[in-house]
Design a protein around this nucleic acid. Structure first.
Length: 117
DNA sequence: ACTGTGACACTGG
DNA sequence: ACCAGTGCCACAG
C-alpha cells in the first residue's frame, strides 16, 4: 500500500494533534495558539475539527482566545468542570490564561532568516 | 463549482 | 459587553 499522495495538510493536522496531546494537566491553550504552535497560523478552525475528529485528546484544555470557553451547551460546562478539576482557575467566565496558558516550545513557523545563535 | 456552516481570531463601532 | 464584518481552512449538500 502506499499513499498515493499525502496532502501536506495531513501533516499539519498531525502536528496539531501532537500539540494538543502535549498539553499537560492543569495547562490550557487556545485554538489559535495551538494552530500557530503547530506551524499553521490561522488554522484555529482546523484545530477545532481535529478536536472533534480525534478521540482521546484533552479537548477540554483547548479554549478560545483570552481563555474564553467557546463551547456552547452542556459541553461547555463540562469543559469548565474538567479544567477546574485539574486545578485551572478562572477569572469570571474565562480561564486565567496568565497562570495556565501553556508555552509551546518549538516549532515556530519558518520566519525569514534572522535566527540568532 | 458554489454556498453554507463551524468548539475561531481580530478589528471596529 | 454585544454585534457585524473580514480572514482562514476544510467539509457537506
Amino acid at each position: 500500500m502506499n499513499r498515493p499522495a499525502e496532502p501536506g495538510s495531513q501533516e499539519k493536522r498531525n502536528r496539531i494533534i501532537r500539540c494538543i496531546r502535549s498539553l499537560p494537566r492543569g495547562k490550557v491553550s487556545s485554538y489559535g495558539a495551538v494552530a500557530a504552535a503547530a506551524g499553521w497560523q490561522g488554522a484555529a478552525r482546523q484545530v477545532v475539527r481535529v478536536l472533534n475528529q480525534v478521540p482521546g485528546l484533552p479537548w477540554h484544555r483547548v479554549v478560545g482566545a483570552g481563555g474564553a470557553i467557546k463551547i456552547p451547551g452542556e459541553d461547555g460546562a463540562e469543559q469548565r468542570f474538567r479544567l477546574r478539576m485539574e486545578g485551572v482557575t478562572f477569572r469570571g467566565a474565562r480561564v486565567d490564561m496568565a497562570k495556565h496558558e501553556h508555552r509551546f516550545s518549538a516549532p515556530r513557523a519558518k520566519r525569514k532568516r534572522k535566527t540568532r545563535t
